[in-house]
Design a protein around this nucleic acid. Structure first.
Length: 833
RNA sequence: GCCGGGGUGGCGGAAUUGGCAGACGCAGCGCCCUUAAAAGGCGCUGGUCCAGGGCGGCCGUGCGGGUUCGAUCCCCGCCCCCGGCACCA
């Protein structure tokens, strides 16, 4: 029956949205141009991977960004608000394997469709700045930077044990492995010894960490995650001499040099290179091999399992504890990792739980070097205390003992203080096709040679067989692989890996500053004007990944003298997920809301409104179909009012500064309080949900006022007040629901866009109050409310409160101890029996 | 285990600096409009007690204590949930 429903009960959102989207686009309303005279605002949302269709997560993040951009426009900022496509990546290649579509075709078709979807949302992008990362005109510049990084040792090639995703058929960087699984496909990652390219992010570990404390516009949790990921720890590195083998020393790292006297054994990672020199007897060597194979066999997942026993193999070699000269046993064990520190440790079971566990299992000596507190019953002790059993360190505090132990190591020439990081270099080689080629060749005569600058870009060839098996697809394209050596002109072979797609997303925000620039990565002056990004908005899933890489890459570009900023993103908003029925939306759960359907049936303004209203941006958003309808109802209500009163409103004065009645003054105060609240909610912490709630309250008040005021005041005054209120609603709601507000604004007789208006400012006169409500408590319980002159003295208010009929019985015959008066808020009468 | 964020009506969520807990919306209930439905409008809506009435009493922000005239907010101890890291030496 709803099929025949007349269109009259819903405002014509489809026509309106199409109309205004066309007007904005044709008029290039949101085009950004450098203008040194105006303050700039760079508003950026993380660009999407063109997977095919947008989902509700996109609707949410782009709605948030759009509110901010439009608000800043209205605030007089010169806003840049760009959009583009993170267009390289595996899904395109997988689609090619599954359906035989070329990744390029698949990608560009997806981009076209998704662009049209975004346009139906009415987002204020400067589409002239659109960037697509799989375009050679884009990635050529990161190839150039690659060459420069290579020259400076910031890009290098090495063979090492890396994370291999068997399903994606490629290496993954450490950041891209989550709990032993691939971040993208969730397959279990296996170690593999392979040669690949790395970016030396570790050279920037200290700076990346130091700046964490200066990124005051970032959420605490993201900063914490980045700090944890970088994982700085201070300590000492020193050598343990091998007993009877003066030529061999084992370097260990510890954060607790003060505990060295408690070292009762030492441990090497099973794959530590010294093991082969230490173990010479064939029988022992066989044992070592067996142990290594066993350790290697256990998967990453098993190694992460809790409470697994620490396995180890005692070697025949022994080492000397240099602090006390004791000969102590040496092990290889699975709990020591080659990838952290020096791959070897001094073991102090008394003060380290892992060592304690291992010592117990292998029946090793435990020496306590810190005095335990009275009644201590635990195992390894990691708390504070005084040093004992520690020779020259006895009696010292832990901090002082650390210093003296290090001084001693330095004096003995055995070691020094060091800082160790958990962060590893960024492995960027991908054994896949759909990515930017690495601009390096291997010449038979010259060895590894970077491609010449004038030969860039190294274009990704189109005609490549993509099977998903058998190594890098580019290796099977002779026309690509075989190329002349840039140095000697002889026969050379190109590198057939492509770059991690996180490289493209590490600088796209810079490209937006001058997206068609042809003589470099970006125009210097443009980047200097627009950078840094003032507000970045995106999902928490990139807390470490993209956000760490982009920070690093920006610093590299700065050191290459290409850009001036130290950090790309001044402020970050990490928006929560969109949830439905208590779970993340997914096809398998059947709880997916399709943005296309939503926009078709209820309109973009309603979709945006609910996305912004249902929760503050940083929290997860619980999608609720009935709630969305509530949003539609609200917009209809505004529509009916404005259209229904259009004649009166158009004829009215734009404001009524001095209403002649109390009701008028009160209503006008509501209008201006709303302006204040909405502005505060946006400025303070992007709490768009409460901003919208405030506008809803104003609309409710508007209806109430309209109903009550008909004969209560002069018609011209009433009309002016109604107009002032309706215009405030339209201006305040504009950034949230741009189409309907734009349309109604026009219907009120305005010829210029809402987004060319100045953001309204609350009128101080309207806000002023003569009387305020003061709550009266007796012993902390509310007993009455008083309406009191704003300027009443505390003594007056106290007198009024004590004289109040509802207060008196509660005081009764009790003695009044004291009376607390909070001006303009509250009186608390404190009594005693 | 460590770090971070949380716990408020049937639900999503408000409460800016320690000062009226539950704004706004959803759901629900009642009424109005209508031949009827849809749409819309108006009102009620934390629990509980007092036969009923009230501008009523009491309880109430995960639990137990504390500080304070006053605590959703601060402190101490616990429980639970979410996220991150995790044999990191």
């Amino acid at each position: 029956m709803s099929i025949d429903r007349p269109a009259g009960d819903r405002y014509p959102f489809r026509a309106i949205e199409a109309k205004w989207q066309r007007i904005w686009e044709d008029g290039k309303q949101f085009r950004a141009t450098e203008d040194p005279a105006r303050p700039k605002f760079y508003c950026l949302e993380m660009f999407p991977y063109p997977s095919g269709r947008i989902h509700m997560g996109h609707v949410r993040v782009y709605a948030i960004g759009d509110v901010l951009a439009r608000y800043k426009w209205m605030r007089g900022y010169n806003v840049i608000h760009p959009m583009g496509w993170d267009a390289f990546g595996l899904p395109a290649e997988n689609a090619a394997i599954d359906n035989g579509v070329h990744p390029a075709i698949w990608t560009y078709e997806n981009i076209d469709y998704m662009r049209s979807q975004l346009k139906t949302m009415g987002l204020s992008y400067d589409w002239d700045r659109e960037v697509t990362t799989c375009d050679p005109a884009y990635y050529r510049w990161e190839q150039l930077v690659f060459v420069k990084m290579l020259e400076r040792g910031l890009a290098y090639r090495k063979r090492s044990t890396v994370n291999w995703c068997p399903s994606c058929q490629t290496i993954l960087a450490n950041e891209q492995v989550e709990g032993g699984r691939c971040w993208r496909c969730d397959s279990e990652v296996t170690p593999r010894d392979i040669e690949g390219w790395f970016f030396k992010i570790t050279a920037y570990a200290e700076e990346l960490l130091a700046w964490c404390d200066r990124l005051t516009g970032w959420p605490e949790r993201v900063i914490t995650m980045q700090k944890n990921w970088i994982g700085r720890s201070e300590g000492a590195a020193f050598d343990l001499p091998v007993a009877g083998r003066p030529e061999l020393r084992i370097r260990v790292f510890t954060t607790r040099p003060d505990t060295a006297f408690g070292m009762t054994y030492a441990v090497l990672a099973p794959e530590h290179p010294l093991v082969d020199q230490l173990v010479t007897m064939p029988a022992e060597r066989a044992e070592v091999e067996r142990f290594r194979a066993e350790v290697l066999r256990q998967s990453e997942i098993e190694r992460l399992a809790e409470d697994r026993p620490k396995r180890g193999l005692r070697l025949s070699a022994k080492v000397v504890n240099p602090f006390n000269g004791a000969e102590i046993p040496l092990f290889i064990a699975d709990y020591v990792l080659m990838t952290y520190g020096t791959g070897a440790i001094m073991a102090v079971p008394g003060e380290d739980q892992r060592d304690w566990d291992f010592a117990k299992r292998h029946d090793l000596q435990i020496i306590e070097t810190v005095k335990r507190p009275e009644g201590w019953t635990g195992e390894a002790y990691t708390g504070d205390g005084v040093k004992i059993n520690s020779g020259f360190l006895d009696g010292l505090t832990i901090a002082e003992a650390k210093r003296q132990a290090i001084d001693w190591l330095v004096a003995q020439g055995l070691g020094e203080a060091t800082i160790n990081y958990r962060l590893r270099d960024w492995g960027i080689s991908r054994q896949r096709y759909w990515g930017a080629p690495i601009p390096v060749l291997y010449c038979e005569r010259c060895g590894m040679v970077a491609e010449k600058e004038e030969n860039l870009p190294v274009v990704l060839p189109r005609d490549v067989q993509i099977s998903g098996k058998g190594g890098a697809p580019l290796a099977s394209a002779p026309s690509f692989v075989n190329a002349p050596c840039p140095r000697c002109g002889g026969r050379a072979r190109r590198d057939t890996d492509t770059m991690d797609t996180f490289v493209e997303s590490s600088w796209y925000f810079l490209r937006y500053c001058s997206p068609r620039h042809e003589t470099g990565m970006f125009d210097r002056a443009a980047a200097e004007y627009w950078m840094p990004v003032d507000q970045y908005i995106g999902g928490i899933e990139h807390a470490v990944l993209h956000l760490l890489y982009a920070r690093f890459y920006t610093k590299v570009l700065r050191d290459l003298a290409l850009v001036k900023v130290d950090e790309p993103f001044m402020a970050l908003l990490s928006q929560g997920m969109v949830i439905k029925d208590g779970a993340k939306m997914s096809k398998s759960k059947g709880n997916v809301v399709d943005p296309d359907d939503l926009i078709r049936t209820l309109g973009a303004d309603t979709a945006r409104l609910f996305s912004l209203f249902a929760a503050p941006p940083e929290k997860d958003l619980d999608w609720n179909d009935r709630g969305v309808e509530g949003g539609a109802r609200f917009l209809n209500r505004i529509w009916r009012f404005a259209v229904g009163h259009a004649d009166v409103l158009r004829a009215a004065a734009r404001r009524c500064e001095t209403p002649s009645t109390d009701a008028g003054r009160q209503f006008r105060r509501t209008i201006h309080e709303t302006i204040q609240r909405v502005t505060g909610d946006i400025e303070r912490d992007f709490h768009f949900n409460t901003a919208i709630a405030a506008v809803m309250e104003l609309v409710n008040a508007l209806h109430a006022f309209e109903a009550a005021s008909a004969d209560a005041m002069p018609a011209t005054e009433r009309a002016a007040l109604l107009r002032e209120a309706v215009e405030a609603v339209l201006l305040l709601l504009g950034p949230f629901c741009p189409h309907v507000t734009e349309e109604l604004w026009q219907r009120l007789g305005h010829t210029e866009s809402v987004f060319k208006q100045r953001w309204p400012e609350a009128d101080g006169t309207a806000l002023a109050r003569e009387e305020v409500t003061v709550v009266v408590q007796v012993d902390g319980k509310i007993r009455s409310r008083l309406s009191v002159d704003v300027n009443a003295s505390d003594a007056d208010v106290e007198r009024l409160a004590l004289a109040d009929d509802k207060v008196k019985p509660w005081v009764g015959s009790r003695r009044i101890d004291k009376v607390v008066v909070v001006p303009r808020r509250l009186v608390n009468v404190v009594t005693r029996a």
